[in-house]
């Protein structure tokens, strides 16, 4: 494939300063998303999925600092842009859907106004036109009775509805890149399926690149083209979704799959992952942050991590892959 990536993240490292030391949260993270492609970032809590998204969006916590890397988007490095330029692009060129729609929406502003705000701010509509444009957006995310629902406050809507409002806000200006951070956590499976279908259709229609952050491997596999597996701030494996499930190569990906209910017939077949994440404050962090938990560890594992290419678009960062 010769598709031009919509977003290319290269060598991204992020550190957090805390009272108990510097936490090396991301270490030379790299991946790309093509136009019209949906890529999943998966991993356990603390793997750095959300921090990656926040760094790209320029909304890292003040304690966090980007120490290296680039995020190339439309010819510019997002990490080098001024806050002013970023604010100009954010919401128009790239936008984000957050985990909990109820806390991310303004509780005391009508949802229609919240959509209109984004449109007006980025020149998608003039103030007088904005209410009608907001109704249009609600129709696009298939909210029944949109004329009435623009007048609603978030608390008057169900969780699934609020998530659709978030999607409407994120997509109002037809961004080229969407980051969805666990957009269906806390929703019912039936609602989750409808929301995921909707994001997929809208992305497909407009050729939008989508980064989908989740800890649910099965969900990632069903809705994404490619999967990037993260562990303790490293990208350990990246592969097309189908390929990752059929032939996972990194020992961590294998363990993660074995711990996910769904494929197995009984509880006994599910296996947990031994050990836990390493303390990312350690000054002597091993080159491979999984090596302390790894059953396939060999002498080479102390060397700097390789990025092995295993056929088309399949990369594994391991000295002894399966």
């Amino acid at each position: 494939m010769t598709a031009v990536p919509a977003l290319a993240v290269e060598e991204l490292s992020v550190e957090f300063r805390t009272r108990s030391g510097i936490v090396k949260v991301l270490d030379h993270v790299g991946f790309s998303v093509d136009k019209g492609e949906t890529v999943a970032l998966v991993g356990e809590s603390g793997s750095g999925k959300s921090v990656t998204a926040f760094a790209v969006m320029g909304i890292l916590d003040p304690a966090g600092k980007v120490t290296s890397g680039r995020a190339l988007f439309g010819g510019a490095d997002l990490l080098a842009l001024s806050e002013r330029d970023l604010a100009e692009q954010r919401g128009r060129e790239f936008s984000m859907i957050f985990q909990n729609p109820r806390t991310a929406l303004n509780p005391i502003r009508k949802v229609g106004q919240q959509i209109a705000d984004v449109l007006v701010r980025h020149g998608g509509a003039t103030r007088p036109d904005a209410p009608r444009a907001a109704v249009e957006m609600l129709k696009r995310v298939r909210i029944p009775d949109p004329e009435r629902r623009v007048e609603a406050y978030p608390f008057e809507l169900s969780g699934g509805m609020c998530q659709r409002i978030m999607i409407a806000i994120a997509l109002a200006c037809r961004p080229a890149l969407l980051i969805a951070d666990e957009p269906t956590t806390g929703l019912d499976v039936t609602t989750q399926a409808v929301i995921m279908d909707l994001i997929g259709e809208l992305a497909h229609e407009s050729g939008m690149a989508t980064i989908f952050i989740t800890h649910d491997l099965a969900l990632a596999a069903e809705y994404c083209d490619r999967i990037v597996v993260m562990h303790a701030g490293h990208v350990v494996e990246a592969a097309p979704a189908r390929e990752l499930f059929a032939h996972p190569r990194h020992p961590y990906s294998v363990k993660l799959l074995a711990a996910t209910p769904g494929e197995t017939a009984s509880l006994a077949e599910l296996a947990s992952i031994p050990g836990g994440l390493p303390d990312l404050r350690r000054p002597d962090l091993p080159a491979c942050r999984y090596s302390d938990r790894c059953e396939r560890r060999i002498d080479d594992c102390v060397k700097p991590l390789p990025n092995r290419s295993l056929g088309e678009r399949h990369i594994v960062s391991c000295w002894n892959p399966l």
């Binding site: 399926a193 491997l217 769904g262």
Partner: peptide, 24 residues
């Protein structure tokens, strides 16, 4: 049926016909 067809299914060969619920 709708509940079960909404369970995310990693293996594309095991995905049964999607049954999506409309309406509220």
């Amino acid at each position: 049926r709708a509940l079960i067809s909404a369970i995310p299914q990693a293996d594309p060969d095991k995905r049964v016909g999607r049954l999506r619920l409309g309406g509220e």
